[in-house]
Design a protein around this nucleic acid. Structure first.
Lengths: 128, 128
DNA sequence: TTTTGCCTACGAATATTTTCGTAAACAAAC
DNA sequence: GTTTGTTTACGAAAATATTCGTAGGCAAAA
């Protein structure tokens, strides 16, 4: 039984790509990473192999170039990391985080409306 | 010039204590940490010394027991970490983060109202 | 004064994450 | 068939974070 690790920063970069692009080879992921980052190919490979061992990724070894895809859902992963941050950084207060996020980040009106909408939904459910 | 490091998890634990309690000795911080965690005294000491070098903490060495306090503001630090998470985990969308946070975490009505209030404020400013 | 206890400083062992070099497999190009 | 290029696997270096042991200072208690 291994300790419950969360995706590291580098792992998140890869997950983001796979969530967006769907199943991809190491080469494809590496290429996209390369746009912002600068590391060798085997670095990306190794990272993805480790993620496979950790069960963050699935892979199809049918072809010469293995095809990887995310084995964890984006929602679930975001939720997990968010919870962590709320606990560690915002002393358990989700609302504090929300307000901080709304305050600092310039959010345009459309987004605010969307949030407002959502908030009403949640509130409705809570009330009942 | 050193690379811009962000507070690590352990460092956040200490910062949280100092933000809440105000200036404190290593012993005091260690005691509070000990409630949830279990590490030696010198571990805490070393961490705080490193944080001092990184300028995360200030200290008064006047007394035998040095008195430490946070050198970075809670707001600013939370904002920094939040921005990071929005970028790395939520593809730059603050609103996505907000809704995820509202959805997953059980937030009680009082908090929701508070957020709603705040949201209206922000929206007012945005509109004008 | 000697002992005891708590403090700091510091170096180093561990653990974790990120990086890459090298070897072997394999297929396409020559 | 040999070379060339791309791939995987693997080990280990490098970078970062966490932990602790030990030595020395200092003051209160004995």
């Amino acid at each position: 039984m291994t300790k419950a690790t969360r995706p590291t920063d580098s792992e998140m970069e890869i997950l983001n790509i796979l969530w967006q692009k769907g199943p991809s080879t190491v080469r494809e992921v590496h290429e996209i990473l390369g746009e912002n980052k600068d590391a060798g190919y085997t670095t990306t490979l190794k990272l993805m192999q480790i993620m496979f061992e950790k069960k963050l990724l699935k892979r199809d070894t049918g072809n010469k170039s293995h095809v990887y895809q995310a084995a964890v859902s984006q929602q679930q992963t975001q939720g997990q990391l968010l919870k962590r941050m709320i606990d560690n950084v915002f002393n358990g207060s989700a609302s504090q985080l929300v307000m901080q996020a709304l305050g600092n980040h310039k959010t345009d009106k459309k987004e605010l409306d969307q949030i407002m909408e959502y908030l009403k939904e949640v509130e409705k459910k809570t009330k009942s």
